[in-house]
Simulated assay, not measured.
Amino acid sequence: MRRPTRPLLLATTALLALAALGIWYGQRQEAPVARAQSTIPVRVVSVAQQDVPRYASAIGSVLSLHSVEIKPQVEGVLTRVLVKEGQWVKQGDLLATLDDRSIRASLDQARAQLGQSQAQIQVAGVDLKRYRLLSSDDGVSKQTLDQQQALVNQLQATVKGNQAAIANAEVQLSYTQIRSPVTGRVGIRNIDPGNLVRASDTQGLFSVTQIDPIAVEFSLPQQMLPTLQGLLKASAPALVQAYMDADGERTLLGEGHLALIDNQISANTGTVRVKAEFDNKDGRLWPGQLVTIRLRTAVQENALVVPPPVVQRGADGHFVYRLDGDKVTSVPVKVLYQDSGLNIIAGVKPGERLVLDGQSRLKPGSRVEVAPDAPPPSEMADGRGQP
């Protein structure tokens, strides 16, 4: 058997040395990568302390405080309509007129009858005085005097009846001028001038609906009844906000106040109806409109506030990841109030930095790399925690 030659031994040694060098170099390159992969990137936010209003939300329907269907109270031909559809009118404005000739004739007839009765009672009164003088000397019988007195009483009653007929005719005549009972907006006209209208008609001429102020009716769970009663008794009216949701955006339509609670709870739904009133000078709230309602029920002072994504839910309840140096610690917390804008929690301290994003890869003791802090909850939720 031939022994390996010296050149072959040298070549083998060189190959082994190169292999060892390659392994050593690869390990040096992988070490930083392994260290880099051991840190998890996260975003954090500081616990804020602030006064937070608390709200109850519901879906409400906008209602007019006064909506009147304009109908005639007497029969007649509609001669004029003095307002246009959509026009704003004030209480007492003349809206329409009816043909009043027949009623005016009846009024003139009643006045003539009154004049006739007044003349008759004047003559009867003079005769009564004469009979009284004659009766003292037995110039007329007692029966004649009594008959004349009865005639005077009868004519007095006739005069009162004539006066009542005149008053009735004047009222009927006033009905031929239809005036607005409220300040509001005229709706779509149903009947045109020239048509005969009656008080018994089922369809009115048009409607007049009050727009400012306006109301919103909504329902809340019966468990909130004590809170609602306390809000009504408070010196300051409870704030109510009305929003409209459209195309993924929420628009504030108006701010009003809690007005009343219904006098009974619905046995079918377990809810109580509530009404709020709004100033509506710009007409953004419209009768029949569905809106989202937020009723401010309280203001919690010095509350510890975080954005909703900070709070996680585990098998044992809610918890957060707190940043301790370059590692995180799981801290159990209690959620006192929550909505889509912020959460009020207990179990942490003001200023502590909590993980906002990246919790899915974390566990207690994980090493993290912190991105720039997120804005505080007050800026994210506009300070009010919009739902």
Rank of each mutant, 00 (worst) to 15 (best):
V291F: 01
Q300H: 13
N280K: 03
V306R: 00
L304P: 01
N343S: 12
G283W: 08
L342Y: 13
V320W: 02
D316T: 15
D279W: 06
R313H: 15
I345E: 00
K327L: 08
D279I: 11
V291G: 07
V328K: 07
K327A: 15
G351Y: 08
L285R: 04
R294S: 07
S340K: 13
L290R: 15
D339P: 06
A298I: 05
V306C: 08
W286Q: 14
V333W: 00
I345Q: 00
A315Y: 13
Q300L: 15
L285C: 08
E301H: 14
D316K: 14
P307H: 11
V331K: 04
K349I: 10
A298F: 08
V310W: 05
T292I: 13
A303M: 09
E301W: 10
A315M: 14
T297I: 10
G325C: 11
K281L: 14
K334F: 00
P309Q: 08
L285Q: 03
G347P: 00
D326I: 10
N280R: 11
V335S: 04
A346H: 08
G314P: 04
G288H: 06
P308E: 08
L336D: 10
L295S: 06
G317A: 03
T292L: 15
G288L: 02
G283Y: 04
R322Y: 06
V299S: 11
T292Y: 15
V331S: 03
K327W: 09
V310T: 08
P287E: 09
S330M: 08
V291L: 11
I345C: 00
V311A: 02
G347R: 01
K349V: 10
N280G: 00
D282C: 01
V299E: 12
Q338K: 14
D282I: 11
N343M: 15
G317F: 04
A298T: 11
R296C: 10
L323E: 06
T292G: 10
Q289P: 04
V291D: 01
V299A: 12
Q300M: 15
G341E: 04
S340M: 15
G341T: 01
V320C: 05
V333M: 01
E352L: 04
R284Q: 15
N302V: 11
Q338M: 05
L295R: 02
L295F: 07
I293N: 03
L323V: 14
K281M: 14
G283C: 05
G314E: 06
D339V: 02
V299N: 11
Q338P: 08
G288T: 03
P287T: 07
L323F: 05
V305G: 02
H318R: 11
G351C: 06
D326W: 08
I344K: 05
Q338N: 12
L342M: 09
G351W: 08
V291R: 02
L304D: 01
L323M: 06
I293E: 01
D282Q: 10
D339E: 09
V333G: 00
V305Q: 11
P307R: 15
V348P: 02
R296F: 03
P350F: 02
K334I: 09
L304T: 09
R284N: 07
R284V: 05
V291I: 12
Q338V: 13
N343C: 09
K349E: 12
D339M: 03
Q312C: 10
G325L: 07
V291P: 11
T292V: 13
